[in-house]
Design a protein around this nucleic acid. Sequence first.
DNA 1: TATAATTCCTCTAGCCACTAGAGCTTCAAG
DNA 2: CTTGAAGCTCTAGTGGCTAGAGGAATTATA
Lengths: 136, 136
Amino acid sequence: MFSIGQLSKRTGVKIPTIRYYEQMGLIDEPERSEGNQRRYTKDGLSRLSFIRHSRDLGFSVEDIRGLLDLSQHPEKPCSDAHSIAAQHLQDVQSRIAKLRRLERELKRITKCDAGNVATCAVIETLADHGLCETEH
Amino acid sequence: MFSIGQLSKRTGVKIPTIRYYEQMGLIDEPERSEGNQRRYTKDGLSRLSFIRHSRDLGFSVEDIRGLLDLSQHPEKPCSDAHSIAAQHLQDVQSRIAKLRRLERELKRITKCDAGNVATCAVIETLADHGLCETEH
DNA sequence: TATAATTCCTCTAGCCACTAGAGCTTCAAG
DNA sequence: CTTGAAGCTCTAGTGGCTAGAGGAATTATA
């Protein structure tokens, strides 16, 4: 049996976040001590590790709900898991693409070597959309 | 004089967002019609375009506050503008780096061709951090 | 065993940058 | 002068937490 603090240390998930996951229904309400403190089992630990790991990979809480559900049913086909992951991969890739466009534009405008704001490329670009080179 | 709807169409900023910017103090409270509706001038239009453009480039509202302030003072040196932009560029680059790590990991795990959840690499990876190849 | 230090509890509110909706008023076209 | 679009204010919700108040339980030390 682990206290919430021990669970937190073992998983790297902060205590308020654990309680938040409980509230969101991602983890079951654990048993309580006589004094009403949460007491977790190994099962609770591995479920939270699963969540932690999924969050590290950027899955949303809703995605994780689906993935957790699947993980409880080993006999199911895993195409659902794959489509969640593939969709997420696409999201990540499109975010990367967008950020790379931003990066290019920011690199361009920060090259400015004007002395004051009147002729500064950063300010000028922001003030006048026509100076942009790329769509964003 | 533009109504809020006309301003919205010209800048591409949604109406509630314009009111939100006003509330946040990014744009001045405009004059009102007799019936209490907002009436904007060209100045209001260009200020909002500046904001729109800055948001497109991913600057935070706080950054924009600083950039707007600078843009009102053309005689100031532009090193402040540059440091805001350079900092933002760094943020963007570190976000890209993080997403690329995610992308690599997601690509790896979605290669799984198992039939069911019991042996699915997606689920296994999430359940067991030890199976990860890279830090994330 | 007494006390002190630490951990835990619930509850509310805040973060960012909006977005949605209710219920009402004003404006512009025909 | 009517009608329908556009405007108004106000409140609450989004996601994924995080912070803080004010108190109770647990654990470590004396």
